[in-house]
């Protein structure tokens, strides 16, 4: 029981870090960014390159990698997304193209083999008789802190107010003199940075290879559909639901059934309540 509680919390934290960024950029810019999983992959690969080829210390490599991916996110937003933001279909296509280009670039540069992202903690911890890897506990801790910090940033800062304003009414926000393009860039940087961080934290215990972007985007998608596109509390709640649902199915039924949970949840939610738990209105 305690094991399910801990393992489910770790999965939920990783999912939440992925989904919050994904829903944030949708809530603010109405951009359904299919390249979000690529930021996750690039975070992990960036840390791999910086630690194994450039021999940087892990913390420096991780921070630098987050910064680089955030900058890459801004670049993608400026060059590809901004000119065609009016058409959601075009944005969908261009971000999918970016994701595939990133995947192929990783294939060509690193091959299809797994790569190693070193862990910050290699030790094993025992909590109430449950053995749990330090890297997982760290992912849980950092996930909670970072999402908390993001929440404070949105609620307490001027940038945060601007983000809220745009998400509630983009036109009115623009009339009030809020520089929406700059805000989009900030949100894109935050979203990409969060995904990269998730990749770095999950890299030591999950896979690091060119197709690693696909599963996270599927999960993030499922979570935001369940939670409501654009709603941060919705995605946190849905991340918890999905993380725990998968863990419970894994423990009580079979590991081979876990992957169907997210697909089923998406399907059910789309049938029963297409707006998701919190719908559009509850954005932030």
């Amino acid at each position: 029981m305690l094991e399910i509680l801990i393992v489910g919390a770790v999965s939920s934290a990783i999912y939440a870090m992925l989904a919050v960024g994904f829903t944030l950029i949708f809530g603010v810019a109405r951009v359904l960014n299919l390249a979000h999983g690529s930021f996750y992959a690039l975070g992990a690969y960036g840390t791999y390159v910086l630690t194994s080829h450039l021999k940087l210390p892990l913390l420096a490599a991780a921070l630098l990698s987050v910064a680089i991916v955030a900058a890459f996110g801004v670049l993608i937003e400026r060059v590809f997304i901004r000119p065609m933001r009016k058409s959601q279909l075009a944005v969908l296509m261009i971000t999918l193209a970016v994701a595939l280009v990133v995947e192929q670039a990783l294939f060509l540069t690193f091959g299809s083999e797994y790569r190693n992202v070193p862990a910050f903690v290699d030790a094993k911890f025992t909590i109430g008789g449950v053995n749990i890897a330090g890297a997982r506990l760290l992912a849980l801790g950092v996930g909670v802190v970072v999402i908390g910090a993001l929440w404070l940033f949105i609620q307490r800062t001027r940038y945060g107010s601007a983000i809220l304003a745009i998400s509630q009414d983009p036109q009115a926000a623009q009339y009030m003199g809020i520089p929406s393009d700059r805000i989009f860039s900030v949100v894109m940087a935050l979203s990409a940075g969060l995904a990269a961080l998730a990749g770095i934290l999950a890299g030591p215990f999950l896979t690091v290879q060119p197709t690693m972007w696909l599963l996270p985007i599927v999960k993030a998608f499922a979570i935001v559909v369940v939670g409501g596109l654009g709603s941060i509390p919705g995605s946190i709640l849905a991340a918890l639901m999905l993380g725990y649902a998968e863990t419970i199915v894994g423990y009580t039924v079979s590991t081979s059934w876990t992957e169907i949970v997210s697909v089923l949840a998406t399907l059910l939610m789309l049938m029963l309540r297409p707006a998701g738990i919190f719908g559009r209105r509850a954005a932030f």
């Binding site: 863990t247 423990y251 590991t255 992957e259």
Partner: peptide, 17 residues
């Protein structure tokens, strides 16, 4: 005898069983 999906990303439940 345990089978798992090729996409499995968390083996904790399986190891526990």
């Amino acid at each position: 005898v345990e089978f798992f999906d090729a996409q499995t990303s968390d083996f904790s439940p399986l190891f526990s069983k």
